[in-house]
Nucleic acid binder design. Structure first.
Lengths: 111, 111
DNA sequence: TGCTTTTGCTACGGTTTCCGTAGCAATTAA
DNA sequence: TTAATTGCTACGGAAACCGTAGCAAAAGCA
């Protein structure tokens, strides 16, 4: 399937509006998790795979291609996957999700 | 499939750690888009469906059930879907994604 | 140098999820 | 009181995802 890129019509967005394209991209299986696992620094393929509960290499490979094509990730000198400058700003936006999730867990389990 | 809830082992998380559960939930198809479309206020089923490019009602129905069970959304007095208090805090975390996406579009299209 | 292990994937077939269409009971509008 | 509209559910086909196997290239070891 085609990588969602701004301006390009994709699943769930005929117009290619950037936010819609982003939501499509982030909503693909494992994408958020991959970004999450890279939060503390670059990881290589097999390490990243095991951090993601040994996800299927075919899907990991595909997701990484998409994220690289979207300029959110890039392979560094050692071949590890790392955030680009733009990707890093996205990472910072995602960071507060952990606190939210912890609070959510408290509320949902003890109503 | 089972709704991801904190503490419950789900796809991509044996442990049920809240952040992992959240990433699984948000990574399901259309979830981010649904939350996005509800950003300016509650919407009823069919309106929400058409805002989401006429997504399949079967999937919309399932996603709404999951989001309600997860206490992120709730049906209001008129039967429209609205954020809960926790859901609203999540909405605020998602809001800056639009600016990010716009900047991303500028960079990706004019490198 | 040759041998073994590890790495970064790709291929492939089975399973799960998603999708579109049809339709129906309940509510609202005319 | 009939006609729309609404909020779904059912169901079969399409697409995405999954696990396993395996392979070429690089790295480690002797």
């Amino acid at each position: 399937m085609a990588t969602p890129l701004p301006g390009r019509p994709v699943r769930g967005s005929r117009t290619g509006r950037p936010i819609m394209v982003l939501l499509d991209l982030l909503g693909r299986r494992w994408v958020l998790r991959i970004l999450w696992e890279l939060r503390d620094g670059p990881l290589k393929f097999r390490v990243l795979q095991e951090r993601c509960e040994d996800m299927s290499p075919s899907v990991l490979s595909q997701r990484l291609k998409e994220l690289v094509e979207a300029r959110i990730l890039a392979a560094d000198a050692e071949g590890a996957y790392a955030f680009t400058e733009a990707g890093d700003r996205l990472r910072r936006l995602l960071r507060p999700l952990r606190e939210w999730a912890d609070e959510w867990a408290r509320r949902v389990s003890s109503p």
